[in-house]
Simulated scan of single mutants.
Amino acid sequence: MLRMLVTTSPADGVILVVEGPSDVRALRPLVNPGVHIQALGGKSLVVGAHQNLGSAHERRVLFLVDCDNEDNTPVKGLPNLIITSHRDLECDLLFHLDGAKRAALDCFSSGLDHESVVKAIKKELVVSTEVACRFNATKDEARLLQLPLGIRDVTTGKKRRFALEDLPRFEEWAQGTSDLRIPDIAARLGEKLGWTTGQVALVANAAVARWGSACKRHSVSACASCGRMRLCNGHDLEAALVARFNRQGSSITRTEMERLVRVGADVSLANGWPVVDRIRRFEGWAGLRVLRTL
């Protein structure tokens, strides 16, 4: 399919290949109207398409994948494959392009002035980011131990990933009555997923060590900025923000939060986003235009 797109598109046309439909919606405001954005349905499919493309078309196709806190060494440094700065594109939008501000303004515009909303979102981002990081640090360790992490969706009956809002006591955390420290998270995951007491302890101890380890960049234990980049999953962060906003009187849904983060991403901040820097490098290498004038 990808080769067909290349051969049937204009000679100066660029195809931007991403993981999913939400990535298409997020990136559309940043790229030229003539750029075709194609979602393939997952990181492995995008990386596989890159490997199978061949050198004849490599300057016509740009690939973008989530970091996912994986060892991306085999695909790092490739001129036509870009990896997000944070764990996923949603977090890049939230932290580099201030995506949550629009959601906060929509939720609280009637009750707070602009300055108060900005202060509120900064506070909620810190609190929500921390719990999302703890949750994913715990899940990462469970994954390394090959413990089960999927649950069956009560609506569709299909298996899906265990999300932050599935965690027992998540609502208590949102209301400010529970801290949800890593040992608590491990215990609640084990309770829902059938882990043994020993497995819960192994996961909790390893996750606490991971969370508290010194980062390579700053040599600081529990470094907030590096921990955020390695451990914060955008979907879980959005779920946490929804719960915290609704605690304060909003009635925003997850779907609406995801939409507002994408439409509210501040394009004027794109020049400070490493993904945009990497796209510009591709433009220089390929001799083709991808970005709108930013």
Rank of each mutant, 00 (worst) to 15 (best):
R278G: 00
V203K: 06
D179V: 13
R230E: 15
T197R: 14
V65E: 03
S221I: 07
R102T: 07
T138G: 08
I151F: 02
H86D: 12
L189K: 06
A224P: 14
I182Q: 04
E238W: 04
E283T: 06
W173G: 05
L27D: 00
G13M: 02
T196N: 09
L30A: 09
Q146I: 04
R102S: 11
H96N: 14
L2H: 04
A11Q: 15
W273C: 12
V154F: 10
A39S: 14
F162Q: 02
N233H: 13
W195F: 06
P148H: 07
F95E: 12
F282K: 06
L97T: 04
S110Y: 08
R278K: 13
C133F: 05
L2D: 05
S116I: 04
F170R: 00
L144V: 12
G48T: 09
A56H: 14
P168V: 07
I83P: 00
A224S: 11
V131D: 01
R228I: 08
D98F: 03
E165A: 11
L193T: 08
E238T: 13
V31G: 05
A206D: 11
F63M: 06
Q175F: 09
L62C: 07
G264H: 03
F63T: 02
F135K: 04
L30I: 01
D140T: 11
T177K: 15
A137R: 10
N205L: 10
L40H: 03
A265V: 01
I279W: 02
W211E: 10
M257G: 01
A239F: 06
A240Y: 09
T8C: 12
F95G: 00
V275D: 02
R230K: 15
L288I: 09
R280A: 07
L62G: 03
G212S: 15
A104M: 06
E171C: 07
S225K: 11
L45S: 09
E70P: 05
E130D: 14
L202M: 13
L30D: 00
T196G: 15
I185A: 00
D71F: 04
R210A: 13
C67R: 14
V14N: 01
A56Q: 15
P10S: 14
T253Y: 15
L167P: 01
P183A: 05
L81E: 00
K101Q: 13
L149A: 03
G48Y: 00
K139E: 07
L97W: 07
V203W: 09
D153H: 05
G194I: 08
F108G: 01
W273M: 15
A11F: 08
E58V: 08
R289M: 10
V47H: 06
E70L: 13
R280I: 11
M1C: 10
H50N: 03
D236E: 05
D184P: 01
A209F: 02
A142T: 01
V290M: 03
V127L: 08
